[in-house]
Amino acid sequence: MSEEYSSDAAMRPNSSNDRRPRLDTYDRRMLLVLQRDGRVSNAALAQEVGLAPSTVHARLRRLQDTGVIRGFFADVDPAAVGRPLRAMIAVTLRSTARHRIRQFVESVIDLPPVIDAYFLAGGDDYLLHVAAVDTDDLRHLVEYLSAREEVAGTNTSLVFDHLRGSAPL
């Protein structure tokens, strides 16, 4: 028996102390269209969601100003730019180094192989999504991380494929 996942949490009204902006059906439709094509024109977006272009423009500005839309960017294929080997590296920091979390993040976020860094709850402290040139490049990165004084350990998993889901709207 297959069970479908469903959640109405995103559709519940905001509580009085919730600072998230209220999103109506039009906002959610706009966000879904923009996730498929972030370069869609204002006129095409307006037509697709059934609003006037001026209304869509104002709503987009509000979604950006309130932080719902954090930015627009190009989704670059790492393999196309010479970094075909992708991996996830779980990093555990020493308990005595918790005060150096910011320093650790600042030291790794701008390294060429690092695509994303996720701060975690649970057994690991960070999960780094990386794209390396080859296995030697990946090994060098893991050795660099492991040699850092604040790092207690790493665990590397190779990524065979990356599938993007839609955001929880």
Rank of each mutant, 00 (worst) to 15 (best):
S2K: 12
E4A: 07
E4I: 06
D8T: 10
D8H: 09
S15A: 11
N17L: 06
R22G: 03
L23T: 06
Y26S: 08
R28M: 09
Q35A: 12
R39D: 09
R39G: 13
V40Q: 14
L45S: 10
V49S: 05
A52P: 08
A52W: 03
S54V: 11
V56T: 12
A58S: 15
A58M: 14
R62V: 07
L63P: 01
Q64P: 05
D65T: 14
G71W: 06
F72I: 08
F73K: 13
P78V: 03
G82W: 00
L85I: 13
R86S: 13
A87T: 10
A90F: 15
A90W: 13
V91R: 02
T92N: 10
S95G: 11
S95V: 07
R98Q: 13
R98D: 05
R98S: 09
R100L: 09
R102M: 09
E106H: 15
S107H: 11
V108K: 01
L111P: 10
P112M: 06
I115N: 04
L128G: 04
H129S: 12
A131P: 12
A131H: 00
D137R: 01
L141T: 03
S146A: 10
A147G: 15
G153H: 03
T156E: 03
V159A: 15
F160L: 15
H162D: 06
L163G: 08
R164D: 14
G165K: 14
A167D: 11
